[in-house]
Amino acid sequence: DVEPGKFYKGVVTRIEKYGASINLNEQVRGLLRPRDMISLRLENLNVGDEIIVQAIDVRPEKREIDFKYIP
């Protein structure tokens, strides 16, 4: 289970102007929005990149997770 405040290694699977889709595994994925990137710009991400993200909002009833990137 993903817990708010914990850090996870994820893989960038899609990049859109509203954010990047991050997969932690086949069943768990979430969104990294541009506003939640401290020192990383969306255009510097590539599909397949592995990054460390922090879960900031977990809504299991909607199967949604928001991530934050902290270098």
Rank of each mutant, 00 (worst) to 15 (best):
P71Y: 07
E61K: 08
E3P: 15
R63A: 13
I56H: 05
G19H: 06
G10I: 06
K9Y: 10
E26V: 10
R41Q: 13
M37F: 04
R35H: 11
R33P: 04
Y8F: 04
P71C: 15
F67V: 05
V28F: 09
I56N: 02
I65M: 05
I38S: 10
V47D: 01
Q27N: 14
Q54G: 02
R41A: 12
D36H: 11
Y18F: 13
I51K: 00
N44L: 10
E3M: 13
F7D: 03
G48K: 00
V47K: 02
S39A: 12
V53S: 00
K17D: 12
F67G: 02
D1R: 13
V47R: 02
Q54N: 01
R29Q: 15
R59Y: 07
L42Y: 07
E3A: 10
A20K: 01
K68C: 10
K68E: 04
I65T: 02
R41S: 14
G10S: 02
L42G: 04
L40T: 08
E61Y: 06
V47E: 06
L40M: 10
N44C: 15
E50L: 14
K9W: 12
V28E: 05
R29N: 12
N23Q: 15
I38V: 13
I56C: 08
M37K: 03
Q54C: 12
G30H: 03
R63E: 11
I70V: 14
G30K: 01
G10W: 08
E16Q: 11
R33V: 06
V53K: 00
V53Y: 01
P60S: 09
Q27V: 13
E16P: 01
P34A: 11
P60N: 10
I65K: 03
V12R: 00
V11G: 00
R35S: 12
A20R: 01
I15P: 00
Y69G: 02
P71W: 07
N23E: 15
I22K: 01
M37S: 05
N25Q: 05
E26Y: 10
Y18T: 11
D1C: 15
S21T: 15
R33E: 04
D49K: 01
K62Q: 12
V58L: 06
P4N: 10
G48H: 02
V12G: 00
G48A: 01
L40D: 04
R59A: 05
